[in-house]
């Protein structure tokens, strides 16, 4: 995982509650065994009509948002299917952080395993930021080292993030390596599990 320390960039608003992972990557595109290349399918049905022609008014198709690394969206983002393809698609498209009032649990874990930073902000704050994207181009700095989001008008918002998760992002740590540092504890645990917790081969 790539470390995440500080991010400067433009905000793309796709402001609706309950955007599910079937919208983020439709099922017909997850029949692949690779981990990359999903950016071309990101929000496919919202980006293209049935002839493959772009919907001009959809933010991901607009030039002004090209390369913008911050997504602003509604509550319960990433609900539904556990498909990690949703996170791979957002990451490959160029997103590095998502601002929303809340995230679905599995999606949030998937983000944290891929270096895509999910930041929860109060509904009112998200509403205000959304209003600003409708009036002007909104640029934000997400400074994870100092736990602060700021804009060019010197407005600052604190980032509420679990300290251990923050550490993982800052260092770009791999979970499996961390876990294997306590391998002895795993083996000890395995040795004391009751027999009926294993499938009984008859």
């Amino acid at each position: 995982m790539q470390p995440f320390r500080k991010l400067d960039g433009k905000v793309t608003p796709i402001y609706q509650d309950d955007i599910d992972t079937d919208i983020i990557v439709p099922t017909e595109f997850i029949k692949r065994i690779e981990r990359t290349g999903f950016d071309q399918y990101l929000m496919y049905y919202w980006r293209y009509d049935e002839h493959g022609k772009e919907y001009r008014d959809f933010p991901l198709n607009q030039k002004e948002y090209k390369g913008a690394p911050i997504l602003l969206t509604g509550a319960n983002f990433g609900c539904g299917s556990s498909r990690e393809n949703a996170v791979w698609a957002l990451y490959d498209f160029g997103f590095r952080a998502i601002l929303a009032p809340s995230f679905a649990d599995i999606f949030k874990n998937n983000c944290q395993n891929n270096g895509l930073l999910p930041i929860e902000l109060e509904q009112g704050v998200i509403d205000e930021l959304y209003q600003r994207t409708q009036e002007e181009s909104l640029f934000l700095t997400i400074d994870l080292e100092n736990n602060i989001i700021s804009d060019r008008n010197q407005i600052t918002l604190p980032i509420h993030i679990d300290p251990k998760t923050r550490h993982k992002f800052l260092e770009g740590l791999d979970d499996i390596d961390l876990t294997l540092s306590v391998e002895k504890e795993i083996t000890d645990f395995e040795n004391r599990r009751p027999f009926y917790m294993d499938p009984i081969k008859k």
């Binding site: 065994i33 690779e34 993982k168 740590l173 306590v182 645990f189």
Partner: peptide, 29 residues
């Protein structure tokens, strides 16, 4: 819970079920 000192509590998993759609990338990794 096997360990509580890491980023998150570490749980032992008794049963892991897998299917064809979400496992390929996991096996590759």
């Amino acid at each position: 819970v096997i360990d509580s000192s890491l980023e998150k509590p570490l749980l032992f998993i008794d049963l892991h079920l897998i299917h064809e759609v979400t496992s390929p990338q996991a096996f590759s990794k």
